[in-house]
Design a protein around this nucleic acid. Structure first.
Length: 668
RNA sequence: GCCAGCAUGGCGCAACUGGUAGCGCACCCGACUUGUAAUCGGGCGGUUGCGGGUUCGAGUCCCGCUGCUGGCUCCA
């Protein structure tokens, strides 16, 4: 809804006629005036195009959340007069505000703060915008050192524009004039104020009862580890109570799917404390899933012209000196084992020791395989594949389930090709990657192109440019959305990563494809060209799963534990209605087993209903139930995970159905 | 690495302000023999993550370590 306006009117006066009584998602929170978001009480100029922005729209929600952050900050400063303000922007699904406080917040504090926010919301405080000069702002915010810092960064002296002041700080100062937002009570007194660019909802009332504080955590000021650590309070806010409820339900669903929880419930893997942080063991059932994942991947790689290699887990440090890993990533590697040093009784060194490192990457080893003899152009592209286990010393605070571990197995391959082959190889590689991911059940992708970070890279501009363009071209032919990631590349070359959306809409970085001109140089890799000259190959690094552990975790969450039959640890469980019918099921099981199906017959003394419950909770895809009727007819009855049934299916057909589902990797 | 919180039998949880560990599931034994998500009865199992300290007495309070959780920073 757009309108042209008369002189001197506020945005709201322009919109009012059309939007009176808008509530919930339809409530108007701000206006878009000539493309910019403005407060509803902002004066608009003659001829301006004014558009209503509703609470339910993405912009409206962001404004609402930003306003919620102000209410939070007001509540915090009321409860903790010592609290100094950091920044408080809206984020996905909510907002946060950073505070410098003497004592960190406890969960109980959060409850109290949420109540206090409720009172502020009920009070219906008005958000009032006031333009200030830099001097005025400095005077008013003399007690807020962080705000002063932001003013300084943005101020006329500091050419803040365009520079990244701090993530989220743009909501405080932004471009243009400095403004302060005041929360004004009904009696006209000012309850609280904050340096803020705005815009804001007209009143705290707009938040209704559709907000909640979710957690508190520390965060570095301006995102820099060298800076002071502030206490961040996170909250969520929605246009309606229903929106909040749906969000809470979404979190609950994610919680139910959490691979760490499912890993325990389904007896797939564990992280024994004795081994150390971030190091998983896979139990028999998890082992089956892993093996199926790997076997299928191996087969597909074989069909696609890959050669298989195997390399050790540790190496003398020379290798990582050659590769440059020790220069770039020593911090992320496990410290060396110092071996073979010999000293005399008096301590004099008799023999120099050796440092051995656990490998954090497989590529240097593959380069040694390449270099083990002379190579001809006729061999290229040479594709070396390995399920290579690597160890990385992830910092203690970042280890997380299977998605961030210290020991993992990569489905790693390195492709050595000529420059001329590079573009075609990248194109077919991307097809291969996406096809394989689809076979595992992921089908919603976008691509990210990570380009050079000048401060953290080596190599010539021309090389980077050529590689980046080759990747961009490959991405273009895939037809998928391509999101730029400037500066996100590794030091040795640009990369494309495949991001997959899972069943509940979360995105995960899956495969990566990286072009590398550096390692071939460092390892002096060569091949003999058709004209007899020695040439340097290009190297492409690629992993589809990233790590098997991580991919396992992603699939586990994607399927909420209900793997398709080909991956399911147990594919079929036979459940006799009574003990007498167990032999019939054992016969059926034998026939399935002969076809390679993982099948069990539950002939324990549990009740049938209990067995159904047990194996349904274990997410077994096919339950085959048999009673007198089935035995007479030479049949079995299917029960599926969703509770649906298919009774009296002849055994031949039942076996064929299960085998077919496994063979086609269908979900049931 | 930083901040905060947490750690009780295989799993999920309980034990008021410090008074010497309890429940459900799982597991084992027995009875029951049943048509689509929990049959009944009995039993086993924990020196409360590890190490110190305070106290007449510590699951509970204090210190250190390990691990986990949520963030921040990082993620080749």
């Amino acid at each position: 809804m757009e309108r042209r306006v008369p002189r001197g009117a506020t945005a709201w006066q322009v919109l009012e006629g059309d939007h009176r009584g808008g509530r919930g998602d339809d409530a108007v929170v701000v206006a878009r005036v000539g493309g910019d978001l403005r407060d509803l009480d902002a004066e608009v100029a003659e001829g301006d195009v004014v558009e209503a922005v509703t609470a339910g729209s993405p912009d409206g929600l962001a404004v609402l959340r930003h306003s919620a952050a102000h209410v939070l900050a007001q509540a915090v400063q009321a409860a903790r007069p010592d609290a100094r303000l950091g920044i408080g922007p809206p984020v996905t699904d909510g907002f946060y505000y950073d505070f410098d406080v003497e004592v960190p917040f406890t969960p109980e504090d959060l409850q109290g703060l949420q109540k206090a926010m409720g009172r502020i919301v009920k009070e219906g405080q008005r958000f009032r915008r006031r333009v200030v000069t830099e001097d005025e702002a400095r005077a008013e915010l003399a007690d807020e050192p962080y705000k002063l810092e932001l003013i300084g960064l943005k101020g006329p002296g500091g050419s803040g524009a365009g520079e990244e002041v701090a993530e989220g700080a743009s909501v405080e100062v932004g471009g243009g004039e400095l403004t302060i937002y005041e929360n004004v009570r009904r009696d006209g007194s000012v309850a609280w104020r904050d340096l803020c660019r705005g815009p804001h909802a007209p009143s705290t009332k707009a938040l209704g009862n559709a907000f909640a504080l979710t957690r508190s955590a520390a965060a570095y000021w301006r995102g820099d580890q060298a800076n002071a650590q502030l206490q961040r309070v996170y909250g969520t806010a929605w246009a309606t109570k229903e929106g909040l409820t749906a969000y809470v339900e979404r979190l609950a669903e994610a919680e139910r799917r959490d691979h760490r929880r499912l890993g325990t419930e389904l007896d797939l893997f564990s992280f024994p404390d004795e081994i150390g942080s971030g190091l998983a063991v896979f139990h028999p059932r998890g082992g089956v899933v892993r093996r199926e994942m790997e076997d299928y991947s191996r087969r597909r790689h074989e069909e696609s012209g890959y050669s298989f290699v195997t390399t050790p887990h540790i190496t003398k440090k020379d290798l990582f000196e050659t590769s440059g890993h020790l220069d770039w990533y020593a911090d992320g590697m496990f410290p060396p084992m110092h071996l073979d040093e010999v000293r005399d009784a008096d301590g004099t060194l008799r023999r120099q020791g050796q440092d051995y490192y656990l490998k954090p990457m497989n590529c240097p080893f593959h380069n040694l395989v390449y270099r083990s003899r002379g190579r001809s152009y006729r061999e290229l592209p040479l594709r070396l594949f390995e399920f290579g286990t690597v160890y990385r010393y992830e910092k203690s605070g970042v280890v997380h389930g299977l998605t961030r571990v210290r020991g993992m197995t990569q489905d790693d391959a390195h492709i050595y090709c000529t420059r001329e082959q590079m573009a075609a190889e990248l194109g077919s590689l991307l097809d291969f990657v996406l096809g394989l991911l689809r076979d595992y059940g992921l089908d919603d992708f976008y691509l990210e192109l990570s380009t050079r970070n000048p401060d953290k890279s080596i190599g010539s501009d021309a090389d980077w440019e050529e590689a980046t363009e080759a990747l961009r071209h490959a991405a273009g032919t895939s037809g998928l959305e391509l999101v730029p990631d400037p500066g996100g590349a590794a030091f040795y070359g640009p990369k494309i990563s495949v991001q997959a959306r899972d069943a509940i809409g979360r995105t995960w970085q899956m495969s990566t494809i990286q072009v590398d001109f550096q390692l071939p140089q460092r390892f002096e890799l060569e091949y003999q060209a058709a004209d007899g000259t020695r040439q340097r190959p290009v190297m492409i690094h690629r992993a589809l799963f990233g790590s098997i552990e991580r991919f396992f975790g992603v699939l586990l969450e994607h399927y909420a534990g209900a793997f398709p039959p080909w991956l399911a640890p147990v594919q079929v469980v036979g459940i006799p209605v009574a003990g007498d019918f167990a032999p019939h099921l054992h016969d059926v099981a034998a026939r399935l087993r002969a076809q390679g199906v993982r099948v069990e017959v539950d002939d324990s003394d549990d009740r049938m209903q209990k067995k159904i419950r047990t194996h349904t909770k274990q997410k077994v895809p096919f339950l085959l139930i048999a009673g007198a009727e089935d035995v007479e007819k030479g049949a079995v009855s299917f029960r599926f995970r969703d509770g649906s049934q298919d009774n009296g299916v002849p055994v031949d057909e039942a076996v064929a159905r299960v085998v077919e589902a496994v063979r086609t990797r269908a979900q049931v």
